[in-house]
Amino acid sequence: MIGPDRWNRARGCQIIAGYASLDGAALPILHALQEEFGYIHEEAATLVAQALNLSQAEVHGIITFYHDFRRAPPGRHVLKLCRAEACQAMNGARLAEALLQTLGIEWGETTPDGALTVEGVHCLGLCACAPSVLYDGKPLGRVDQEVLGTIVQQARGA
């Protein structure tokens, strides 16, 4: 099971129209769509292409180029774990591996109950308090197995 699908065409069109006049509007639009719906629906990509006078292939290219943009709904909560060197130096890689193993998922996947999506990121700029994560946009530093366990519990309880 994955997270709930919140895609709504009318709201999507509204969002696109709100940003379409910007110079270089593609990223601001895609961010706004993902902020609203959690991912970029295939239909949304078509609408973006129409609004910006781009081909569908170009919009597909943009969405798939950037690590941020999801093409399927995430879980109810999203945990972004830093995988870069400063966090590696503080045991981050082993912590992450253990977490994924416990949850039985790979990077970028969602737990079967739809509670938690775990994504890897390359650096959150919290390198002096490694290892670090962003949980639903909230930064957490000096993370250990216990903190990660609490996050999983919270995600499942909520």
């Binding site: 110079d23 270089g24 509007a25 593609a26 990223l27 601001p28 895609l30 961010h31 910006l52 170009e58 290219g61 943009i62 180029f65 950037y66 690590h67 941020d68 943009f69 990121v121 390359h122």
Partner: peptide
């Protein structure tokens, strides 16, 4: 202020400018 979208390469200036213009970096 504009947001990137999770691409290390966009720190390279020509890639960054492509990204700002709304394209792949």
């Amino acid at each position: 202020a504009r947001l990137g979208a999770g691409a290390y390469i966009c720190g390279e200036e020509t890639s960054l400018l492509e990204s700002l213009a709304g394209r792949r970096g």
